[in-house]
Nucleic acid binder design. Structure first.
Length: 421
RNA sequence: GGAGAGAUGGCUGAGUGGCCGAAAGCGCCCGCCUGCUAAGUGGGUAUACUGUUAAACACGGUAUCGAGGGUUCGAAUCCCUCUCUCUCCGCCA
């Protein structure tokens, strides 16, 4: 969420900033709710103050004395008034808070203006189609693909979009995860294995509730959500805590399965590994000093990019335009790998800076140079998401004899130079 | 799942209806003192919201003793519900 004072004092700035995003949000109505809430607070507290003063007087009076009894009678009336006003205050408070939480983060000034994904800016391209095998084909068209990535049986066991990875592909997946974690650890990110179910408070803190309610799987019996990304649980690791400035930047990496309902998506876009409901991802997260956040975003992005480079995968980095960045995001880069068989770019990482938007919701602060409490800035990005990286490897490295050459950096872990065929 | 105990400020830990935002100790900060890191001594030491204000690190108010409800003129203190922690039993990968 935004800084309340800033919002109140600069509604025009906020209105203008979020108008560039695709989210609807009635600033006027929210300002109104704020005014109403403050009036309610002032009124209730004035009366409450009166009540407290009277109570202190009563404490001095002898218990059963006539004065005491008279006071009790008098106070009864005030007491019920206080109760009413407090209830009104609570109601006004709740209404305001709920509305305030629907305001998205403001895009950073370095974010290009644009209405749709068409207007994202290609920030960087690495490699070329020269690296792609002449025999490349869409991964789902490789003859042995249905055997080693068994979507049919996954559908039987769970539902569509829950693949079984088999044999050498399973091993390749595991190797990728280990490779990413090892690289991230070497870059100073401390490994974490978090819970993959979270409570609603955690989902709210990162901005997934109420924005993306329908995207998450929900365990109603216990009121838990399955995480759509490790960000959801790991960002909450330090919720309601005060960090030491000397700890910043705090860096973590986490492997988790991720669950996304992706309701309503069908067709070519979702064939094979392009979009599944459960997938594995390694995430990178940072908690940083507000002064460095955008430089820290760049270094995180560059690290994520280095992973693709080490795998030898042709990719591009998009600087997302205002109309395509997410609800809690101030700035966002997407990394897209080129799948040479499908001849499509597939998103494998999204690296974002949330400024203090999440930290405010999650109440993550640090003591700054002046000893005052301040919210940290949070940054995260995938490093990386498995299925589409896997898809690109399968497509781009397909050989004449229908096998797939394992990227060199993984060959030792996989124990083979070629798989499939 | 069953039985019992508990949850208080950065930490330890008092406090069973009013004068308790909360004793005391520790820690931390500021000052004094002492010819050197120690001891002693005086003071200070939460956060959020809100009002006054041009604005405040200024002054005032309210809230916060696990969470939510209730009783009462008044709740850290009494009652109910929930959550979590610990101990014992059962069950189980």
């Amino acid at each position: 969420m935004l800084d309340l004072k800033f919002f109140r004092e600069n509604p025009d700035v906020v209105r203008e900033a979020i108008a560039k995003k695709k989210f609807d949000c009635d600033i006027e109505a929210i300002l109104e709710l704020d005014t109403r809430r403050r009036a309610a607070v002032t009124e209730a507290e004035a009366l409450r103050s009166q009540q407290k003063a009277a109570n202190n007087e009563m404490a001095e009076l002898p218990k059963g004395s006539p004065e005491f009894l008279a006071k009790v009678k008098e106070m009864k009336e005030l007491s019920s008034k206080v109760k009413d006003l407090m209830a009104q205050q609570d109601e006004a408070d709740a209404a305001f808070k709920a509305a305030f939480l629907t305001i998205p983060n403001m895009p950073h000034e370095s974010v290009p203006f644009g209405k749709t994904e068409e207007e994202n800016v290609v920030f960087k391209t690495w490699g070329s189609t020269d690296s792609i095998s002449a025999y490349a084909k869409p991964h789902y068209d490789i003859s042995w693909f249905p055997v080693l990535v068994d979507l049919a049986r996954g559908t039987k066991v769970t539902g569509s979009g829950f693949p079984f990875f088999m044999g050498d592909v399973a091993r390749l997946v595991r190797s990728l995860l280990q490779f990413f974690l090892d690289e991230n650890t070497a870059a100073g990110y401390v490994e974490v294995m978090p819970p993959i179910l979270v409570n609603p408070e955690s989902a709210t803190a990162v901005g997934q509730l109420p924005d993306k309610e329908g995207m998450m799987y929900y365990c109603g019996q216990d009121n838990y959500y399955l995480i759509p990304t490790a960000e959801t649980s790991v960002t909450n690791l330090y919720r309601d805590e005060i960090l030491e400035m000397s700890q910043l930047p705090l860096k973590h990496t986490a492997y988790t399965p991720c669950f996304r309902r992706e309701a309503g998506s069908y067709g070519k876009e979702v064939r094979g590994l392009n979009r599944v409901h459960q997938f594995d991802k390694v995430e990178l997260l940072k908690w940083v000093h507000p002064g460095n956040s955008f430089a820290e975003l760049d270094s995180l992005r560059e690290h994520a990019e280095s992973l693709l480079e080490k795998l030898g995968l042709h990719y591009r980095t998009l600087l997302m335009c205002t109309g395509d960045i997410g609800f809690p995001h101030a700035k966002q880069f997407d990394l897209e790998v080129f799948a040479g068989g499908q001849k499509r770019w597939l998103e494998v990482s999204s690296c974002s800076c949330f400024t203090d938007f999440q930290a405010r919701r999650a109440n993550i602060r640090f003591r700054n140079e002046e000893g005052k409490l301040e919210h940290v800035h949070t940054i995260n990005g995938s490093g990386l998401a498995i299925p589409r990286v896997l898809a690109a490897i399968l497509e781009n490295n397909l050989t004449e004899d229908n096998r797939v050459r394992v990227p060199e950096v993984l060959q030792e872990r996989v124990g083979k130079e070629y798989i499939g065929g």
